[in-house]
Amino acid sequence: MKNLICLLCVFSLTTIHAFNSINKQVDKEIKSAFEIENYVTELKIIDSELKSELSSDFWNNNFYEIKNEQELVGYAYIGEGFGKTDNFEYLLLFDVNLIIVKSKVLKYREDYGGEIGSKRWLKQFIGKSSKDKLLYGENIAAISGATLSVKSMTNSVNKVLESIAILQNKNIL
């Protein structure tokens, strides 16, 4: 019983700040994916009229250009999906040709469905671009026990790719 109380004390003293960890994760992923140490990110401002043509996943000022010494090296998108009872955030990194080079779940709040954080599963998005249509169960594998989260992320990434296609057609990207 004493041990149990000690254990509880240790747990209750531990605090980890979620958002700090998101910042660090994004920074780490950009540096590692593009093999750069120094970079700046600039919000890609999308004309409000054009926004209505794009998926709502694109409305939150969450698409950025990544530049290294004035030169464009890629793009970052921070998206959101839903599990069973809570939302989660994920990161997509694109190269200059808007092909996905990295996908990562940044913050997953539920216990169930957290399987989508699997490195192996997230690899499936790499190489996909606006030319691709993601199909749950076909080119994006299902995960038993995480169906809602898997479908949510697949749908969300699909909408991002569709929106990118629109922006490419209009020569905005």
Binding site: F19, D27, T41, E42, Y64, I78, F82, K84, T85, N87
Partner: peptide, 26 residues
């Protein structure tokens, strides 16, 4: 700029969190 990026990102996240906690996420 990096800091600004994250502030914006966090702001949009915290917004969505408060919206989302009012319902199930299905």
């Amino acid at each position: 700029i990096l800091l600004a990026l994250f502030l914006v990102a966090n702001y949009s996240m915290s917004q969505t969190v408060s919206q989302d906690t009012t319902s199930t996420k299905n």
